[in-house]
């Protein structure tokens, strides 16, 4: 699979751009967090496309961003369950 470039993204409509980025991010996230992959991908897709392209080129940055997303998600789930009970 060829790398995703800014010009490939620019040629697609905005909603399709996020889908294209998600298709690249998802398998990488799936390898780290299988049960949360769809959710984490969705969270990361709210980041600017230009930054997402940089993350795809930098595994270390991507890993730290994924861990950040997991931490945010877990903190959110804990606060949700605290509020409900």
């Amino acid at each position: 699979q060829e790398p995703l470039t800014a010009s490939m993204l620019a040629a697609a409509p905005p909603q399709e751009q996020k889908q294209m980025l998600g298709e690249r991010l998802y398998p990488l996230i799936l390898a780290m967090h299988p049960s949360l992959a769809g959710k984490i991908t969705g969270m990361l897709l709210e980041i600017d496309n230009s930054e997402l392209l940089l993350l795809l080129e930098s595994p270390e940055s991507l890993h730290s961003k994924i861990e950040e997303a997991v931490a945010v998600l877990q903190a959110h789930q804990i606060s949700e369950s605290t509020h409900k009970s």
């Binding site: 998600g22 298709e23 991908t41 969270m43 945010v72």
Partner: peptide, 21 residues
């Protein structure tokens, strides 16, 4: 600094991968 990531973000549905059950 507070994370900018949103825990309420919509879940991503991949086209090219089977959905985990």
């Amino acid at each position: 600094r507070k994370s900018t990531l949103n825990p309420n973000a919509k879940e991503f549905n991949p086209r090219s991968f089977a959905q985990p059950k």
